Amino acid sequence: MAKIFSSSLGGSLFKDERFLYQEFVPERLPFRDEEISELVFCLKPASEGKRPTNVFVFGKPGTGKTVSLKFVLSELEEFSDRAKCLYINCFEYSSKQSIISKITNFLGYAVPSRGISYAELFSKFVAVLRTKKVLPVIVFDEAEQLLKSEETKSLLYDLARLPEQQKLSIGLAFISNDNFFLSQIDDRIRSSLQCSSIPFESYSPSELKEILRERAKYAFNEFALDEDVVPLCAAHAAKLGGDARIAIDVLLKAGRLASREGAKKVLVKHVRASFTQEKPVKVEVTSNLSEQERSILDLLKKKKSQDSGAIYDTLKDKFAERTLRAALAELEEKKLIVSEKEIKGRGFTRIVKLAGS
């Protein structure tokens, strides 16, 4: 049966397609020097075993948040044996028991994730941390998931108060697409965390082209790309909000399509064909929404068309109007809603609808 795979391979245009994988961390991150410098400034004390400044990294999907932080932490561990870094995706680890178990196991003490109370788990974690000469830096990606339940909120409180209550140092980094993550945290927790906020802006079309060319240089054989392929991938991703992961993913899929048909080059037609295979990327857009963005979408699912004033009135007990205005702008930029101005009395209002409705 293995013949069905060998017969469908075609001639590969790739030198090493792994350079286009989402988990790949490049040795150079174009257009992120300023953000990386800020991360280094905040985390450098950990290299001396001192408590670093906690960081909150935020921005739209595909702006280099996760890869930049992973790059900096990898460099930190290479530079010093005093810091030890752990990455946790909060979709995968969503309860405080599973998170504390993961951290404690990471520190070298095996504990189960079930069948033991959180209080006992946390006590073991503290005891293990006291014995270590390294300072752990814990990264929480998709950090907005921590705010979905009271128990994970309480975990944030426990971790934030470690220096004060246990006299133990730990570094915390939070990555989120939700710019309002910190403002949604309880004042006491936010005060204890004292996070430095580092925004990541969307890439411009020219920046996306440079990023793609850098990756393509290592991923494809020489002369494997038609000259219009990279600009089209970049323009497509720019239209969808400047998401570098979309651009890279489209290039990978286009390369595979061209290889499958035995083409001598990746052509524009392969790029256009790859656009139809983007659904997995789209899932991230809808699964990483802020609480206010989800609330607005829930309203619009019940009533397909609403004016902005009605949305503000309905949700005013949960969110400030300024927060809702920002959420509407974000949803429109993510192409999940559309809006148009309409005359109302002596002024204007915005009529908001779900995209495609």
Rank of each mutant, 00 (worst) to 15 (best):
residue 146 L to W: 03
residue 27 E to M: 10
residue 209 K to F: 05
residue 102 K to A: 15
residue 314 T to N: 06
residue 227 E to Q: 11
residue 69 L to K: 03
residue 24 F to P: 07
residue 305 S to W: 05
residue 199 P to Y: 01
residue 154 S to R: 14
residue 69 L to D: 08
residue 64 G to L: 05
residue 134 V to F: 13
residue 35 E to K: 10
residue 142 E to Y: 03
residue 119 A to C: 07
residue 171 G to S: 09
residue 11 G to N: 14
residue 260 R to L: 15
residue 188 R to K: 13
residue 337 I to V: 10
residue 223 F to Y: 12
residue 326 A to M: 13
residue 210 E to C: 04
residue 194 Q to F: 10
residue 287 S to W: 10
residue 223 F to A: 12
residue 308 S to M: 09
residue 265 K to M: 15
residue 150 E to F: 04
residue 243 D to Y: 00
residue 237 A to F: 00
residue 143 A to I: 03
residue 234 A to L: 08
residue 61 P to S: 02
residue 186 D to P: 07
residue 74 S to C: 05
residue 129 L to E: 02
residue 189 I to S: 14
residue 99 I to Y: 09
residue 250 V to H: 00
residue 99 I to Q: 04
residue 323 T to Y: 06
residue 186 D to R: 13
residue 292 Q to P: 05
residue 50 K to I: 01
residue 115 G to C: 08
residue 348 F to Y: 14
residue 132 K to G: 01
residue 62 G to F: 02
residue 9 L to N: 08
residue 86 L to I: 05
residue 132 K to C: 09
residue 102 K to R: 15
residue 11 G to R: 12
residue 148 K to E: 12
residue 155 L to N: 09
residue 345 G to M: 08
residue 15 K to E: 07
residue 190 R to K: 13
residue 349 T to E: 12
residue 26 P to C: 06
residue 219 A to R: 00
residue 176 S to C: 03
residue 290 S to L: 01
residue 71 F to G: 04
residue 253 K to S: 09
residue 336 L to F: 00
residue 91 F to R: 13
residue 197 S to D: 07
residue 227 E to W: 09
residue 14 F to I: 04
residue 133 K to W: 02
residue 259 S to R: 02
residue 135 L to R: 06
residue 326 A to I: 13
residue 284 E to L: 14
residue 127 A to M: 11
residue 17 E to I: 14
residue 44 K to Q: 11
residue 295 S to L: 02
residue 95 S to G: 06
residue 96 K to E: 08
residue 237 A to I: 09
residue 207 E to F: 05
residue 49 G to A: 03
residue 114 R to W: 12
residue 217 K to A: 11
residue 82 R to C: 12
residue 98 S to Y: 07
residue 343 I to K: 15
residue 311 I to C: 00
